[in-house]
Amino acid sequence: MKIIAEVFKLPSGSPIPQFYGLRDDGSIDRAVTDTLLDLISESRPEELQKLDALLTLAQSGSYRPPNAELPDWSANDKNIWLTAPRANIGVIVVSNENIPELASGDGQPKQFSISEAKGAIHHWLQFLQKLSSSGAGNLIGQRFEASV
């Protein structure tokens, strides 16, 4: 999975960080972007570190959810399930409840490996460090790519 973090300049002139996934043909992968990557980019770094620790527990097989029917993590109507019955070992399921085709009810939430999710978190956190040290205005148009 190819992911991009970059700063765009809005018509108003304001810089805005973006995080999105690309398909092999170079088009934006809306399902990846609208689920996992939006959840990551809309979360604070401290929360992402907690999510990363939770993913590590799930990866080791030692995570036991308090209620397997409820999401294990949520941010801005994006939900993550780490265990059965929604997710299999080594896989997470991410929904976006604001997009019917990606919602947990009648839609088809997106599956990711735990390694992909952890890689995306780490890429975004590194990008945020770069933003902090360089300033968003100085990064406009620079693409920070990763394959996870």
Score class of each variant (00 low, 15 high):
90 G>N: 12
85 P>E: 07
114 I>D: 02
43 S>E: 08
75 A>R: 11
69 E>D: 11
36 L>P: 05
43 S>C: 12
101 E>S: 14
93 V>H: 02
43 S>H: 08
106 D>L: 11
66 P>T: 14
32 V>I: 09
77 D>Q: 14
120 A>W: 08
27 S>C: 03
89 I>W: 10
95 S>I: 08
104 S>P: 02
26 G>F: 12
27 S>T: 15
132 S>D: 12
110 K>W: 11
98 N>L: 13
35 T>K: 06
134 S>Y: 00
103 A>S: 15
34 D>F: 13
70 L>N: 11
36 L>T: 06
40 I>Y: 13
141 G>C: 12
71 P>I: 06
126 Q>Y: 07
72 D>R: 09
108 Q>R: 12
107 G>Y: 02
54 L>F: 01
145 E>S: 13
142 Q>A: 12
34 D>Q: 14
73 W>S: 07
23 R>L: 15
43 S>T: 15
87 A>Y: 05
38 D>K: 10
46 E>F: 08
144 F>D: 10
145 E>Y: 02
102 L>T: 10
43 S>I: 07
35 T>D: 04
92 I>C: 11
97 E>M: 06
113 S>D: 01
50 K>T: 05
14 S>P: 00
66 P>Q: 14
135 G>W: 01
42 E>F: 09
8 F>N: 06
108 Q>W: 05
75 A>K: 14
60 S>C: 01
